[in-house]
Design a protein around this nucleic acid. Sequence first.
DNA 1: CTCTTTGCAAATTTTTTGCATGCGC
DNA 2: GCGCATGCAAAAAATTTGCAAAGAG
Lengths: 151, 151
Amino acid sequence: MQNTSLFISAQELQARLDLFENKCRARGLRVTNQRREIFCAVAASREHPSAETVFLQVRKKLPKVSLDTVYRTLYSLEEMDLLNRVGAAPKERFDGNICPHAHFVCTKCGAVYDIFPPQYDVPDVPREVRAFGNVCRVSVQFKGICKPCRK
Amino acid sequence: MQNTSLFISAQELQARLDLFENKCRARGLRVTNQRREIFCAVAASREHPSAETVFLQVRKKLPKVSLDTVYRTLYSLEEMDLLNRVGAAPKERFDGNICPHAHFVCTKCGAVYDIFPPQYDVPDVPREVRAFGNVCRVSVQFKGICKPCRK
DNA sequence: CTCTTTGCAAATTTTTTGCATGCGC
DNA sequence: GCGCATGCAAAAAATTTGCAAAGAG
C-alpha cells in the first residue's frame, strides 16, 4: 500500500538533508538557513508546491525571507539535481502535432524538438493512474541542454 | 530519414485544417479568421511556438489581432484536442522527490500527484535523443481532470 | 438578428534583476 | 576579512479579465 501522507518521514527527510548539504559543499555553495529551509519545504512535502507556496511555508520559520530568494534558490537546487520542476520551461510552448510523440526540451534556451523514437513508444496509461482522474494526454519530456547551447 | 523542415507539407496542413473546422462546428464554435490563423500558425510549424511567437506570426496576416485573443484561442484549441501545450500547468511546480517517477497533472486546478507505476517504468533515453543534446532528466506527465475537480 | 468572439485597455500574476548589506566559510 | 547570498524594491514578462463593438451562423 502506498503511503498517502502529505509529508515524508523524519528519517527520510534527514537523509535528503544530508544529501543537500553534501551537494552544496561539493559545489562550493554556502549552506545558509534560507537554502536549507527552502529545500526542506519542497523535500518534506508531497504536494509539489509552487514557488509562492514554498515562500509562504518558509516564511513561517524565516519571516524575512523574500520571494526572489525562493526563486533563485529553487533554480539552483534544480541545477544541483536536488529537485525537479514538474513543468517544462518557464514559458508555455504549443505543439500542433497531435500524434503521440515525445519532446526534447532545452532547459537553457527553451527550444523544443520532436522525438518520434522507433525504440520507444509513448507509454500506455497504467490502470492505477485512473484513480486520480481521466487521462486525456500523456506528455513525455527529455530535458537537457541542446547542442547549440552547449557551445 | 526524418523530415527536418521547419514546416509541414501543404497537404498535411490542409488535412489538419479540415479537422479543425469539423471539430469547431461539432462544438458549436465559430470558424473565425482569427481561430483559423492561430491554429495554422501552430499546426504548420514544427517549432513549438510560444503564445508570443504565434501572436507575431498571426499578425502578419491579421495585423489587428490581439495577444489576449491568441491566449484565449490557444487554450480553447487545446481543450478541443487540436493542439498540446508542451509544459504542464501555467504555474511552475517543484518536486523534491528525485527518484524517477511520473505525475498526474490536473489541467483544471493544477494539482500534481506522484505516480510510481508498477507496470510502467520511466523510459530509458533512446540513443537518437542524444542527437539533440545530453539528457539530464526525463519527465512523464499524465494530464487530465482530477477527481475532486470532476464533481 | 442573435449571441459568440474579438480588440482594447488595464489589471493580475509570475518571474527576473540591480544593488547595498549581511553572513557563511 | 572576502565574496557569495540575501532582502528590498522595482522592473519585466507572461497571462487574465471586463466591456463595448464586430461579425459568424
